[in-house]
Design a protein around this nucleic acid. Structure first.
Lengths: 215, 215
DNA sequence: GTCTATAGCAGGATAGAC
DNA sequence: GTCTATCCTGCTATAGAC
């Protein structure tokens, strides 16, 4: 068995597939395009993954999910610097983990685009990702913030607030074409720094709304 | 000439095309599917619109853009009830115009999905929509809020805040599959009312962050 | 304007040689 | 495991009858 070679082909296919699925969406990408980009044979996708759709699922299982582990690790390290994290520290770490971090800019883009497309046309990949990644992370965030919130804030309201922070952050990531056109700003380092400042401030004050009772 | 019949076919095709493009995306929809759903002939799309892509553009020109006029009209009517709208009134009207209004639930869904897909894979439709709809609306909102803000708030910060309000609102609209799974809530009237309350509160406090200087 | 028929091509999947 | 060749399906677009 030449497993090493096999694995290399498999990995190259996964890399090309992730990039192309992210850029163009599942239906707009052909197996020919993927095998062309990964310099592998047309038959390799079906040999290694069984079908085009199963390759798509493997992209999530072997690329998307592992990447969230790196993101989460960095999130945890940022919080570790502040022994008693307050809400503003958690929010800041959340925002930065999406907009700034060890991921390359292209990786972040791919990551977000894949998720955005999954949301627009959900498949089994979304189900898997929500249960294995998002729900546990939501619980972690909730546990971090809970001690700083008044007792009258129930779990549902807290969840909605967390989702809102994520929502506004994601909007600035994936709606890049709209934001760039409207503001006339490229997403360079300077603009990203402004964005992080802005979103953190906006979101912290939004979270603080939890401290008031609904009227 | 049987223009009336022609127009009916044209309109039926536009309706089916919009629904299908929204649900599945441009590439995942075939002309056969569209003409099947609109009970028209396979050749009708190319006869009336010239090409599949031009039909897609017409969906934006003749369905998407006109719908924003209805949304904007209702937004204006809501504000007309309060002669001197403060920021909280404007924000509330913004949030409601996306989540609640004269549009049917399905119309709102279609509208958002089309935009979401356009953002993920921008075409000329996005360019058109940004210039003809979003930029003017951004300017209107900015003008409404400007009188209530301290002088030190520059136009760029205000724009980012407006985008944030829109961002969090849109997130709860288009990320419905994720939100529903995570919260276990269907998007029924009760949950929508909770969402409107929540988002409005969150966004008002986020906007109020403008009243502080950056630190 | 509407229809049928079909050209012309690209797609996913697979059989079978090596 | 890798490759070529190919099957078969489904697609867009169009020609031409009515």
């Amino acid at each position: 068995m030449s497993e090493a070679v096999n694995d290399q082909t498999r990995e190259r296919i996964l890399d090309s597939a992730e990039l192309l699925f992210a850029r163009k969406g599942f239906d707009a990408v052909s197996i020919r395009e993927i095998t062309g980009a990964s310099k592998s044979n047309l038959a390799a996708v079906n040999y290694h993954f069984g079908s085009k759709f199963n390759l798509y699922m493997e992209v999530f299982r072997q690329r998307w999910v592992p990447r969230t582990r790196r993101i989460r690790k960095q999130f945890a390290e940022r919080l570790a610097d502040t022994p008693e994290p307050r809400i503003r520290d958690v929010v800041n770490a959340m925002v930065r983990s999406f907009l700034d971090g060890q991921l390359t800019d292209q990786e972040r883009l791919i990551h977000g685009q894949l998720m955005q497309r999954e949301i627009a046309s959900p498949t089994d990949a979304l189900k898997m990702v929500v249960e294995e990644v998002m729900r546990p992370q939501q619980q972690r965030l909730s546990d971090l913030m809970r001690p700083h919130l008044p007792a009258h804030v129930d779990e549902n309201r807290l969840r909605l607030s967390l989702l809102s922070v994520i929502g506004v952050t994601l909007y600035f990531t994936f709606a890049r074409p709209v934001v760039s056109r409207l503001t006339g700003q490229e997403y360079d380092d300077e603009f990203k720094a402004v964005l992080i400042d802005h979103i953190t401030t906006f979101a912290i004050d939004g979270m603080n709304a939890l401290n008031k009772e609904y009227n």
